[in-house]
Design a protein around this nucleic acid. Structure first.
Lengths: 224, 224
DNA sequence: ATTAATTTTGACCGCTTGGTTAAACTATTT
DNA sequence: AAATAGTTTAACCAAGCGGTCAAAATTAAT
């Protein structure tokens, strides 16, 4: 495999990445990708056998790129609060540079859940949460946060950072009507989300005691 | 237009709704819709001229259905805290019954932003926020929440309720590995999200004063 | 320089796509 | 009951789709 080969193969991959993110798997056309790469359509089939395989390659690259951005959150030398701030700062900044990735990934995962399965096969999410929990047991106990709350808290943090990008075009449309720039909003969000989460966690204990009647299904039947 | 016409037209619309939500605009096939409606494909073109118009009809119906679910939040006879709890309870319950709507809507809006434009043309979101703000000025002042924070707070609430459904298949995959049922998680979320937001707002003032150095871009240049 | 292997191309294929049309069918009007 | 209008169907169409293939162009090996 020569120097030039790698170049054309990469050009295909890059063009495919652009088109797939823009149009999605169903909306993308092999001819579009060939045009954007500036070459004959047959070359796409020469290097990647089919549209499906080409998409798989692109999807895997993007998914793992996204996954890797989550990893540094679990570094040990940070306090719980620092981790939260670190997460929002880094994760949102990453999406700022790749604003279409969240919508693309969510859509394709919902459409073909099996594609993400092999990714999560290698990740023991329960373990990760357990480690995170034990690392900060003191902080979490102080806030009266039990292990069962971890899924809610983790998905909450993901919500706060990912949703604005998943709904980017909608928010841009809305913000446009009140003279707000999406990028300003995102810049502000890095700290707002962190402040918000930390503030909520500090008040968490309150609702564990006072509102036991109001918050109905807190103590659900744990299966077996 | 006879009784029977309305029936077949409705059957088309219902079948189209199902298929479009399942496969998206690009992935849906007219033949699929005809099959699901149990009739000849030409009838789709007889009642709706083209795939685009049929999709437009479906999209408009779903979008307005979604929009209407937000309206009751602005009823006057509720306290700010009650509105927050009311929003999460009702909005999440609605999505529980229509779990694929969020992903569908977000994807199609991102793909064709102009389609949502005419919807928002009728809604003066700035006004809605102003009304909401003035309705609860006392509460918000108590929490030291300025009007500029409204967009962050509103999108935060949308994030917390919508994201779990937009990422449903991903979360189901993750939860499956730790023995957590998506529906249990959602049931819990109705109150968790409300508690979380209220707790965060009550702590909001703290970060307005203490952390002015940490939270860098709070006071950005306001254009003009 | 010749051969061999690889890369790139354009022409092509079978199939599916959204969409059309004319005829068959059904209901309504006179 | 005949004519009219509205509904449903099957057959069909051109365009676009992913994919193939053999020949041309290029590079590497002898």
């Amino acid at each position: 495999m020569s120097e030039h080969d790698k170049l054309t193969e990469d050009k295909i991959f890059e063009a495919a990445t652009e088109v797939f993110i823009e149009k999605g798997m169903d909306g993308a056309r092999m001819q579009d990708i060939a045009d954007r790469a500036g070459m004959n359509k047959s070359l796409l089939h020469y290097y990647y056998r089919s549209k499906d395989r080409l998409f798989d390659a692109v999807f895997e690259m993007i998914a793992s790129k996204m996954l890797k951005k989550f990893a540094p959150v679990f570094e040990d030398n940070l306090t719980f609060e620092e981790k939260i701030r670190f997460f929002f700062r880094e994760h949102i900044s990453f999406m700022q540079k790749n604003p279409r990735l969240p919508a693309f990934l969510l859509n394709e995962i919902n459409r073909h859940p099996d594609r993400i399965r092999k990714f999560l096969a290698n990740v023991n999410i329960g373990n990760v949460w357990d480690i995170l929990y034990s690392q900060h047991k003191e902080d979490l106990d102080k806030y009266h946060i039990t292990r069962e709350k971890i899924p809610q808290i983790m998905t909450t943090m993901a919500s706060l950072s990912v949703f604005p990008f998943a709904a980017k075009k909608l928010l841009e449309e809305i913000f446009g009507k009140v003279g707000l720039k999406f990028n300003d909003y995102i810049e502000e969000r890095k700290t707002f989300a962190a402040d918000f989460v930390i503030g909520a966690l500090e008040n968490m204990n309150r609702y564990n005691f006072n509102d036991e009647s109001k918050t109905q299904p807190h103590d659900k039947k744990k299966k077996k």
